[in-house]
């Protein structure tokens, strides 16, 4: 068509629409058909094949893209789910930790209070024991001092006459008891 138009355009104007020489028209038409046939025979299949291939590639790429999009969406969903689980787990861990910390604080406070109570009770018991022991020690010391003083007085007063009196008294009581 282009060739025909080119041929017609190359001819000078003759006042008609067709060229002045009709054979030029036919030759031109023949050339056009030849060229067109060649194009239809060789080029068009290639072009069609190329178009089909491109279309197939485009379809395939589209499918791949859709698949990739679907995969990406799935991954995003999985990640979101994981993130959601992780958040829940983290929240549970934090909650557990807070519970444990609270329990530990309570236990520690209870133990400390118990320790203080025990120490106070022991201190009172020790104090009472020490008081009793001190009283006992003082009594024993007073007794020892008193007896020691009495013994010294007795020993210093025991002359031979007093010894004799003690022995005579012993013999008298022995005789009286028989």
């Amino acid at each position: 068509m282009i060739a025909t138009v080119s041929v017609i355009a190359a001819e000078g104007p003759n006042g008609r629409f067709f060229p002045g020489d009709i054979y030029e028209f036919w030759w031109g038409l023949l050339a056009f058909l030849v060229v067109f046939g060649l194009l239809a025979w060789k080029v068009l299949p290639l072009a069609k094949e190329a178009l089909n291939k491109g279309q197939a590639d485009a379809v395939a790429e589209g499918a791949a893209a859709e698949k990739a999009q679907a995969d990406a969406a799935a991954k995003v969903a999985a990640l979101k789910a994981e993130l959601g689980d992780a958040d829940a787990v983290a929240a549970q861990i934090v909650a557990d930790a807070e519970t444990n910390a609270q329990q530990l604080r309570i236990d520690s406070a209870n133990r400390t209070q118990q320790l203080v109570n025990d120490m106070w009770a022991k201190a009172q018991s020790d104090s009472e024991s020490m008081k009793v022991q001190a009283q006992s020690d003082v009594q024993a010391e007073v007794a020892a001092q008193a007896v020691g003083a009495a013994e010294q007085v007795v020993r210093s007063s025991l002359d031979s006459a007093r010894h004799g009196d003690l022995i005579d008294d012993y013999i008298s009581k022995l005789g009286a008891s028989s």
Binding site: I167, D168, I171, L174, G175, S178
Partner: peptide
């Protein structure tokens, strides 16, 4: 005894013990 006994004390003591 812390002191020695006289003969008289010995005699009286022996008699008292014998009686008892």
């Amino acid at each position: 005894s812390a002191v020695a006994l006289s003969d008289d004390q010995r005699t009286r003591l022996a008699s008292a013990l014998a009686a008892k």
